[in-house]
């Protein structure tokens, strides 16, 4: 068995061909994930965080495609696998949870049917054994009266309960990695905390590593070990959560942190970063953040910043260029 990182992404590049030109939605994204680690990926809509997640488990929607770079899951190169080979990885080694629990489950099959079918796809079990496992999974994700719930249809569950079912489905075969794409965005705030706590607890117990894609910095701060901040398809900053939150190195991250109000603080206005993230068709030359950056200088407008490693904390910004490296 391989005992290196559970996930390695190297120079990932995702392109979306359109009628006029090919858009680069994700560019030069690299990171590693240790076993059992939780990596938060934050960014605005269109920053490429969900695409990165989809690419890892081979579920990019066409016409999006991996145009460069390499991905290893559990030491196995997966970016060049056929759909049939990738299928054996999905569910068993790497699972996924999507944003909307209301639409993630097939409405025409009972929760039990969907669980049993997933379990039996991956594990060599009889129908009765699979049903028993389905029951214990439902209990584990905190669904009351699982015996009765097993034979109900998804529409008989509330949103939060459905997301619990989705998590149970993702955990069917005990995968070592879960890509959670905005798992709480579609839920009520009160339920969000429960689901995050559940995900955190289960992954800790099972030793499952998680790539948690979200735009909610609060969720990341609470859950993740490390965080990657994405902007226009690139990683702006990547480091341990505590460090990134306390002492952000990239002006974009600093802006994000400053725009979160702290409890007990009195402010007239929330801080905001001026302007908005450029569209993929319109990424400026040099550093993509330069038009909005408060610390911009000449070089930022000409050259794209290299990623600088400041001891386990990476940042792509000229401020931390040669003078420190």
């Amino acid at each position: 068995m391989h005992d290196g990182p559970i996930l390695q992404v190297e120079n990932l590049r995702i392109e979306i061909p359109t009628r006029h030109r090919t858009l680069v939605a994700v560019d030069d994204v690299s990171f590693e994930l240790a076993r059992g680690e939780v990596l938060g990926v934050v960014g605005e809509s269109g920053a490429g965080k969900s695409l990165t997640g989809a690419a890892i488990i081979g579920l990019l929607r066409p016409p999006g495609r991996i145009a460069g770079g390499r991905i290893w899951i559990d030491g196995k190169r997966v970016d060049n696998l056929s759909q049939a080979e990738m299928r054996k990885v999905r569910g068993r080694i790497a699972g996924a949870i999507f944003q909307d629990p209301m639409t993630s489950l097939n409405p025409l099959f009972t929760v039990g049917q969907q669980l049993v079918e997933t379990i039996r796809t991956h594990l060599d079990m009889s129908r009765a054994e699979a049903r028993a496992r389905a029951l214990s999974l439902l209990a584990e994700v905190g669904i009351p009266a699982p015996e009765q719930r097993l034979d109900q249809y998804p529409h008989q569950f509330s949103g939060g309960m459905r997301q619990r079912v989705v998590i149970a489905l993702a955990l069917c075969a005990n995968p070592k990695l879960i890509i959670a794409d905005e798992p709480t965005t579609a839920l009520d705030v009160s339920i969000q905390a429960q689901i995050i706590a559940l995900l955190k607890r289960l992954c800790h117990e099972h030793g499952t590593a998680v790539v948690l894609v979200t735009h909610d910095m609060g969720v990341i701060a609470e859950t993740a070990d490390r965080v990657a901040v994405m902007y226009t398809g690139r990683i702006a900053e990547l480091g341990p959560v505590a460090e990134v939150v306390r002492a952000p190195r990239h002006p974009y991250t600093a802006g994000l942190m400053a725009s979160i109000p702290a409890i007990g603080e009195t402010r007239d206005r929330l801080y905001q970063i001026d302007g908005s993230m450029p569209r993929l068709t319109n990424i400026p030359q040099g550093c993509p953040f330069n038009p909005r950056c408060p610390a911009v200088f000449d070089r930022c407008r000409r050259e794209r910043p290299e990623t600088v490693d400041l001891g386990g904390h990476r940042v792509a910004c000229w401020k931390h260029g040669e003078q420190e490296a």
């Binding site: 299928r87 999905r90 569910g91 999507f98 639409t103 025409l108 079918e117 991956h122 989705v166 489905l169």
Partner: peptide, 25 residues
């Protein structure tokens, strides 16, 4: 749809996805 995508993410076979999940819908 999302549920077909999620079925793929669960690693179900193409046959199960198309002939069970999609066809019934």
């Amino acid at each position: 749809t999302d549920y077909i995508r999620f079925a793929q993410a669960r690693g179900l076979t193409s046959r199960a996805i198309y002939f069970r999940h999609a066809l019934k819908n």
